[in-house]
Computed example of a mutant assay.
Amino acid sequence: MRFKLIMAYVKPHLTDTLVDTMKEEGATGATIIPARGTGVREGKTFFGLTIEDKTDIVTFLVEEHMVMKFLEVINTKCDFKKPGTGIAFVLPIEHAVGLESQMGIFRDQARDEYL
């Protein structure tokens, strides 16, 4: 099996919606990393200090054939077409260990996808 890492950068108020929706669609879990950052629009200032937007980085390790389905779910359910909502992208995974408990689920998803 080949795996990909989906990384989604979302505003914290969307994190639970994203994770819940992805699990409903077949994701087996997520890792959530609190972060902060800036984008095209600079943060507001207060007494000379820049207020940076909080962001959550949510990662999903998924089987390769599920990537496009999951990206579409992220895009529509979290309204990524709206500016400032979030971004998501995919990275290749060369090797992974520790997935033995999830391999049955991945095989079932692969079988269902090709039926």
Score class of each variant (00 low, 15 high):
Val62Gln: 12
Met1Ala: 11
Gly43Ala: 12
Leu61Ala: 14
Lys54Ala: 12
Lys54Ile: 08
Val97Pro: 02
Leu18Tyr: 02
Ser101Asn: 09
Met1Cys: 03
Gly43Cys: 08
Glu63Thr: 11
Ala8Met: 12
Asp20Ala: 13
Thr17Ala: 06
Gly29His: 01
His13Glu: 09
Phe3Met: 03
Gly37Cys: 03
Asp112Glu: 11
Asp56His: 04
Met7Trp: 05
Asn75Leu: 09
Phe60Trp: 14
Lys23Val: 14
Leu115Asp: 04
Asp53Asn: 13
Thr31Asp: 02
Glu52Cys: 07
Gly43Lys: 09
Glu94Met: 00
Ile51Met: 09
Glu52Met: 12
Phe60Lys: 11
Ile74Gly: 15
Val58Arg: 03
Thr76Ala: 12
Gln109Arg: 05
Lys81Ser: 15
Phe60Asp: 14
Phe47Met: 06
Val10Trp: 00
Leu99Asp: 08
Phe46Gln: 06
Ile51Glu: 09
Arg41Asn: 07
Phe80Ile: 13
Asp108Asn: 11
Phe80Trp: 07
Thr38Lys: 14
Val40Arg: 15
Ile51Pro: 03
Gly98Ile: 04
Ile87Cys: 03
Lys82Pro: 04
Val10Cys: 00
Thr59Glu: 10
Asp53Lys: 13
Ile57Lys: 05
Gly104Met: 14
Gly104Trp: 11
Gly98Phe: 04
Asp112Leu: 13
Glu94Tyr: 00
Ser101Ile: 07
Arg2Thr: 02
Arg2Gly: 00
Gly48Glu: 11
Pro34Lys: 06
Ile33Cys: 04
Thr76Arg: 15
Lys77Met: 15
Ile87Thr: 07
Gly104Pro: 08
Thr50Met: 12
Thr17Trp: 01
Leu14His: 00
Gly98Met: 05
Ile32Gln: 01
Leu14Gln: 00
Gly39Lys: 03
Thr50Leu: 11
Glu72Leu: 13
Gly104Phe: 10
Arg41Leu: 14
His65Lys: 10
Glu25Pro: 04
Gly37Ser: 02
Ile33Trp: 00
Thr17His: 06
Phe60Met: 15
Arg111Ile: 08
Glu64Gly: 07
Asn75Phe: 15
Pro12Asn: 00
Glu100Lys: 10
Lys44Val: 08
Leu18Glu: 03
Met103Phe: 09
Arg111Ser: 09
Met68Val: 12
Val62Thr: 14
Phe46Lys: 07
Lys54Cys: 12
Gly84Cys: 04
Lys82Gly: 02
Met68Trp: 07
Lys69Ala: 13
Lys4Arg: 12
Lys69Asp: 15
Lys82Glu: 14
Gly104Val: 08
Lys69Gly: 11
Pro12Arg: 00
Gly86Thr: 04
Arg111Lys: 13
Ala88Cys: 15
Lys81Cys: 10
Val67Ala: 10
Val73Tyr: 09
Ala30Ile: 04
Leu61Cys: 13
Met103Ala: 06
Glu63Cys: 07
His95Leu: 01
Leu49Arg: 11
Ala27Val: 08
Thr31Met: 02
Leu18Gln: 02
Phe106Pro: 06
Thr15Pro: 00
Met66His: 05
Glu24Gly: 05
His13Ala: 02
Val62Leu: 14
Ala8Pro: 08
Gly43Trp: 08
Gly29Pro: 02
